[in-house]
């Protein structure tokens, strides 16, 4: 097991290195001079040259990369071009907001997917199953921004039940914070819920054909016991993998959702930074997100191998 974790860790470090190279190259191919962006068009050529020198922009690209990575390893992601605030402190302010949205959306997705997926699998071929199929198809096809707008139109404009946008920190006012997060979480979570429903349905259908399930029925167990105590545990494994893989799409979706509902998280930060061409922020934020995705997938891999004893732990068995 330790060998497996160590091997995955080495692979993860390799990917993180490539991710950092990609982020650096991506941002450094942008046309335009960062010194001009920071000082404005009115700055003198001398001032711009001095700033370029102090920022190390005259160095070869690989030296700039090494400087940047050295900073990243010490927790320094650079400074915002707009107000020179450290990017790390900006990110630390925004991460809890996106984390709250992500966790709530995930909970909503799971709360919908598990019962709907189970019903659809055990009532296969019935009206329930068709409704579920249509729900799953619609859920993966509906654009998050349209769903968000429909929710605002229905619950804010027409019924007046929920505020259309805004954010209050969970620590300041937990109730208001949750109320404000209902629509963004549904808008972000519905796609994942549809995907998990599909996955759980097909995985459960496969498990229900297994011999041990037949044995369960044969020895007189109730359907509830067979499904919940025996089938569901095994059927949840692929669902876990999909959840991990979907984190990337989830964080991408957060960009749109946060923009629609004016939630001041990482997504909105990235969009605003892109629109104002504040590239140190874009660089820091996407680096953080990519690291988070790689790390969560690493954890899912480990969890998967722990949960399913059939999975060979890498080279040890070969």
């Amino acid at each position: 097991m330790l060998y497996y974790i160590a091997r995955r860790l080495v692979l993860m470090i390799g990917i993180l290195f490539l991710v950092s190279v990609l982020v650096f190259v991506l941002i450094n191919v942008i046309p335009g001079d960062p010194a001009t962006l920071m000082l404005g068009q009115e700055a003198t050529a001398g001032a711009r040259a001095a700033l370029r020198q102090s920022l190390g922009l005259n160095d070869p690209l690989y030296i700039q990369y090494l400087h940047w990575v050295g900073g990243v390893l010490h927790g320094n992601l650079g400074y915002s071009l707009a107000d020179h605030t450290p990017v790390m402190s900006i990110l630390l302010n925004k991460i809890p907001v996106t984390l709250e949205l992500t966790i709530l959306s995930f909970l909503i997705a799971v709360a919908i997917a598990i019962p709907v997926g189970i019903i659809s699998a055990i009532r296969k071929g019935t009206a329930w199953d068709y409704v579920t199929t249509v729900f799953a198809l619609s859920g993966v096809s509906i654009p998050a921004f349209w769903l968000g707008i429909l929710l605002i139109y229905l619950f804010s404009v027409t019924l007046g039940w929920l505020p259309p946008s805004g954010y209050v920190s969970l620590t300041d006012n937990p109730v208001k914070s949750i109320v404000l997060m209902i629509m963004p979480s549904i808008s972000l979570g519905i796609r994942l819920s549809a995907q998990l429903t599909r996955m759980l349905r097909s995985s459960l259908l496969e498990v229900m054909e297994a011999d041990y399930i037949r044995t369960g029925y044969a020895k007189g167990l109730m359907e509830k016991a067979v499904v919940f105590k025996h089938a569901l545990r095994n059927a949840m494994l692929p669902v876990l993998t999909v959840s991990g893989l979907e984190l990337s799409a989830f964080l991408g979706g957060a960009v749109i959702t946060e923009t629609i509902f004016a939630v001041p998280g990482l997504g909105q930060l990235i969009v605003n930074a892109i629109l104002t061409r504040d590239f140190p922020i874009v660089q820091g934020a996407i680096l953080f997100i990519a690291f988070a995705v790689v790390f969560v997938n690493f954890l899912v891999d480990i969890a998967y191998s722990l949960l399913d004893p059939r999975i060979s732990l890498g080279g040890a068995s070969k």
Binding site: L18, L22, V29, S248, L251, G252, I286, V293
Partner: peptide, 18 residues
């Protein structure tokens, strides 16, 4: 693998901005 670590929309956004 490294490219797949980025949320596609965020990568597309950044590229479109670049």
């Amino acid at each position: 693998d490294a490219m797949l670590a980025f949320p596609s929309l965020i990568l597309a956004l950044t590229l479109a901005a670049v």
